[in-house]
Design a protein around this nucleic acid. Structure first.
Lengths: 104, 104
DNA sequence: ACAACACATAAGCACACACTTATGCATTGA
DNA sequence: TCAATGCATAAGTGTGTGCTTATGTGTTGT
């Protein structure tokens, strides 16, 4: 179940930080580690979890692996969230009708 | 950190199922258990986690405790998601501009 | 008053998870 | 060719998590 993989992946704060960093621009695993006090294997394992959840996708470039955000995972979160739009605050009420189109 | 509590709470499939059931209408803990093969303490513990994440709020009614969805938690997820709208599929592109207003 | 009920909490246990160190596997540049 | 580099994987370890059984606390109806 992909939805479960996604929410489990996002449950870790380090992984959300990695994802957030990646959202500001694609980069390889070494660049991701910069300023993040995390070991190389730990980073590799986190990226593996994120990739498995389709939150991130990789592209090998020589001995580097370039990582970037994969919209697929985010889309699942968006759809999960859209199921509960009835409970969203009124000030983003306009969002509700738009999300209705999302369902098809 | 509330965001962390929320994502950790949503990481469990049983908890997401409870939340989903609650989204279809407020009810007490016993009603929630119906058709869910879950022990009473387990349900109580899950509700405690959801309440702590502000995904759910309670209202005591005599010896019953009525639970309902708390928009606060959902709102945090919505804001988290809005940070990455640049990666959302094009077909919900109209959503981007609207979410821009959300940031203020 | 008291039994039945709704729910919370405590304690213990099996398993999942995030880390570590060690090592393996390609790829690159000298 | 070979050392250095980028990354993945294996194995082990401490901690967190979700469950269980047992018990506690407050409320209701008789």
């Amino acid at each position: 179940m992909i939805e479960n993989d996604i929410f489990k992946a996002l449950a870790d704060p380090t992984r959300r930080a990695i994802f957030d960093k990646l959202a500001s621009g694609a980069m390889n695993a070494s660049s991701l580690r910069e300023g993040m006090e995390i070991s190389q294997p730990a980073m590799s394992q986190h990226l593996s979890v994120l990739r498995n959840a389709r939150l991130v996708k990789e592209e090998r470039q020589g001995r580097f692996v370039n990582y970037q955000v994969d919209p697929a995972g985010l889309n699942v979160v968006a759809h999960w969230l859209s199921k509960y739009r009835a409970f969203w605050p009124e000030r983003i009420d306009a969002l509700k009708t738009l999300l209705k189109d999302m369902d098809q």
